[in-house]
Amino acid sequence: MYGGGNTFEAIKAEGLEEEDARKMAEFEGRIAQGEKIEPDDWMPRLYRQQLIRMIEQHAHSEIIGALPEGTWITRAPGFRRKLALMAKVQDEVGHAQLLYSAAETLGKSREEMLTDLINGKSKYSNVFNYPTYTWADSCIISWLIDAGAIVNQMANSKGSYGPYCRALERICAEEAFHLKYGHDSVVYMATGSSIQRQMVQEALNRWWSQIMTFFGPSDKLSVHTETLMRWKVKMASNDECRQQYLDMYVPKILELGLTIPDPLLKKNEDTGQWEYTEPDWDEFRRVINGDGPCNAERLGVRRMAEERGAWVRLALKNPTAKYVRPLA
């Protein structure tokens, strides 16, 4: 799961004129040649800041995303699903661990990042501010949200920052299994009893608008990102990702006999582009800024976990140990 990190906030390309022009040219030259930037290499302040923000938000999305899915582990129907879902959610927490380490190489500690998450200073993928009402919601997430994350993360794994790319390659390999699990669980319901078919259709109806907003606001609405594209921080535009996703998954959803709750959705054969009802971006902005059905609950649970675990972290502290940046 759960990328989309660079789409949550507007980017301000400020302070670039203060950077050393010779170093900047060398830096951009390396990226243009397809080289990776490593933690000890020179990099513009904006590059560092954007990457920290993006990787950190990606990591937060992994641990927050573990909550709406994790709540179904104890209720999963049967051993096969239970074991698979446990392994899947565990992977997501493992991804957070990898990503926090990747972000730490840029100079922000895991503690600082988690504090910013709890304080609401740092965002996470907006889709997790919505509830999972039934088992079918968790199956739809495992299939169709994870699928979105793969589209996004495959693109980002070709980016320029070495530690993030390497983390993403490992993450994508695991995500491929999540997708199989999610697809399989949706197939069973969509081809199962009438109760199951109804459950999964209702879940798709609930999640479709979240799926459509997953890649972030339309390119028409989002601020220009050329600098980040040139630096290979952002590898594809929001709309490019969304179009690619619709190409890949609309046929798979329809093949299962499910109905997509958007009467306007169709591929324009002349332009090769999908046309759809524009998602409610006002709602998107309202929810990402805190006013969604589950924002308070998600952060509340995270805060509780942090507070209840404080004595453990304190007890583990070795006063003579020095902070060591993780290996890149």
Binding site: Q90, A305, R308, V312, R313
Partner: peptide, 9 residues
């Protein structure tokens, strides 16, 4: 799941 005192746990 999701509630450990540190991610590793």
């Amino acid at each position: 799941t999701g509630l450990g005192p540190i991610l590793e746990e």
